[in-house]
Design a protein around this nucleic acid. Structure first.
Lengths: 229, 229
DNA sequence: AATATGTTGTGACATTTGCCACAAAATATG
DNA sequence: CATATTTTGTGGCAAATGTCACAACATATT
């Protein structure tokens, strides 16, 4: 059904994970304290939905697999809002529910999700969890990184023309991906997905890439790009 | 210089503040622990800049006033990325610095900013700060709310046409603002700012509003809207 | 109250962008 | 390896959007 799965990342950054810096022994000690609930989901299965009517105070962490968040609006249109990879956090806590819109998180691969009560994470426990602090820090950094990604996405969409959007995205990718000796780098998603990300029509984007090539601004084949500006 | 200041909010939600749920006595006890640095800025003054070259591990909290975050890109174009009101958190930690872009936070009114070292907040202190947990929770919720706003902004920009963007924004506002008996509500920014927010041309937006009026979809004068769909 | 500055509202025109349709290439699947 | 599915690349045409210019209005400032 879906191809090119290994290219489906939206951005390329070193992500903080929920359990970074916490030893296995510490994790095992923390389990009785946090009482995490782990659930498995098959490919295509709905992980959770919310519509803003009841507040869900659980933090969901995607431990393995891939998932997406889609919005079903009042018109019946559905569109993808976010993509989740291993280590991502999600849940109602992180999405401002637009009234009467339905938010649906679906597994795009077989996935494992761990639910943790938000209050348990924030409140220091009676047992001496040395790594509780680390956990809070991780969670905080993860949320901050999420705002970073969204912030970047917005700054790309703020560009007026397709060309400017492309340049904004590609320049960031060039600096993030450390291009090879010839200056080539390969973006982490297909051109179709890129058009979605930039909120432009795919064929219009292709046309723009073409004219940028003839102008000598860049060079590319498929996902491989080389920027001259 | 700037008018209509009370309408300059982007969204309308009950925001968690940094010191919510913490008594004055507790705050005074916490001061020696956190060692916050408070600075005042005049209207128009630069609060801070960053470009991703050195990591600034401080959290900035806008205690009073108003500020904006702008990006200066490689072309020399400058555009507004975010607006900050009282209680907002900002700083390099929350913005993914696009390579060689310059990020500039400027005071739009006389403002007071409190800087706190991130590690001090996250790490439990030797003194018994009962409200340390509350503080962490506040900070976390604030960051989550930030992602909610960005997330909403993105979901608006994902709409293809000006009309869809308008409807998406206005429907949210209607539900957030509790319209009067006649169904009227007043959006919290000027129409010019709205056009910016929706990333469309202002006059094109006005044209669209006009044709929506003739179609009987909505009614409006200035910032006051009444939606029929 | 008078002035300056920004906001709202409108129209004509140019341009960009989206839409559609199709073929070739690349990538998964069995 | 053969097949199915998706991605990439291209062109013509229509529609949506941006640009420019201007007047009336609203809001701060003095």
């Amino acid at each position: 059904m879906t191809f090119a799965t290994k290219y489906d990342k939206l951005l390329y950054m070193e992500k903080r994970r929920f359990l970074d810096g916490i030893s296995m022994e510490a994790i095992e000690k923390m389990i009785p304290c946090f009482r995490p609930v782990s659930k498995r989901y098959a490919k295509g299965e709905t992980i959770l939905t919310y519509s803003g009517e009841e507040r869900n105070q659980h933090i969901a962490v995607l431990f393995s697999g891939r998932a997406k968040l889609e919005v079903l609006d009042i018109e019946g249109d559905i569109f993808r809002l976010e993509s989740y990879e291993e280590g991502d956090v999600f849940g109602e806590l992180f999405t401002l529910p637009i009234n009467s819109n339905e938010y649906i998180v679906t597994a795009e691969e077989a996935s494992r999700v761990v639910y943790i009560d938000y209050n348990h994470v924030i409140t220091p426990c009676e047992h001496v969890c040395t790594f509780h602090t680390q956990l809070i820090s991780n969670l905080f950094i993860m949320t901050a990184q999420k705002t970073q990604e969204l912030s970047f996405h917005l700054s790309v969409l703020h560009q007026h023309s397709i060309r400017e959007k492309l340049l904004c995205y590609l320049r960031f990718m060039r600096s993030a991906l450390k291009p090879d000796a010839k200056g080539n780098f390969e973006i982490p998603m297909t051109l179709s997905k890129l058009a979605d990300y930039l909120c432009v029509d795919r064929s219009a984007m292709m046309r723009e890439i073409k004219s940028m090539k003839t102008e000598g601004i860049l060079n590319s084949t498929q996902r491989r790009f080389c920027l001259y500006v």
